[in-house]
């Protein structure tokens, strides 16, 4: 019962969605299921928050190494939640252009933190490239050459070196890169379909653990 019912639910849901795709009179089912899915998945965020909060509260409680950082996390989480709800109540929406949540938290806290985190990766990618991009074999040389062409083609210095470099960079992106990406996408798509079928038919049950 504890395993059969979930397997049946997965089977029925998956099959109904496939039928809804091919049979127009029941196509609204897809929209309905997607709404239900976003509701259930949205509620699941509570589990994530619960897990995050409990993990860090325990660190604070037992004064484990880095508990001050956990305190910063708990404080920032609660302040953001309070700010969001307050803004919602005050402006009618936390994402209204006049809402302080969007004006200050999003613009001056969230965006700088996120953008800087991703900008930081520029340095690590560069250092990883320095170590990995050595023309030891034909494959590594191709990797090095195409990356160099694309990087140079997207900077003014590339055009200064030779006006053909940006054209070559666009060509690499639009043809060989596209061909490889298309091959990989087709492989992923076929693999995804096969995996989805296995799940619907109950051959793949790892989610029941």
């Amino acid at each position: 019962m504890q395993r059969e019912v979930p397997l049946f639910i997965t089977f029925i849901t998956g099959i109904l969605l496939i039928i809804a795709f091919f049979v127009p009179p029941v196509s609204k089912l897809e929209e309905t299921f997607l709404d239900w899915y976003s509701i259930v998945a949205g509620i699941t965020l509570i589990l994530g928050l619960d897990s995050l909060i409990i993990h860090h509260l325990r660190k604070i409680q037992w004064k484990k190494e880095g508990w001050v950082h956990s305190l910063a996390l708990i404080l920032s989480l609660n302040l953001t939640l309070l700010w969001g709800f307050w803004s919602w109540w005050k402006s009618g929406s936390p994402f209204a252009p006049s809402a302080s949540f969007l004006l200050y938290f999003y613009t001056y806290v969230f965006i700088p933190l996120q953008a800087t985190m991703f900008a930081l990766l520029a340095f690590f990618i560069a250092s990883a490239a320095f170590r990995a991009f050595r023309a030891r074999s034909l494959e590594a040389t191709l990797l090095l050459i195409s990356a160099t062409i694309v990087m140079l083609g997207r900077t003014p210095i590339g055009h200064k070196i030779h006006p053909f470099i940006p054209v070559l960079s666009d060509w690499v992106m639009n043809f060989p890169q596209l061909a490889a990406k298309r091959g990989i996408f087709l492989g992923i798509a076929l693999g995804g379909i096969a995996f989805s079928l296995r799940v619907i038919l109950g051959m793949e049950r790892s989610y029941l653990r």
Partner: peptide
Amino acid sequence: AFTVGVGSG
């Protein structure tokens, strides 16, 4: 199981 079913479909 429901979310997995929707995801698979």
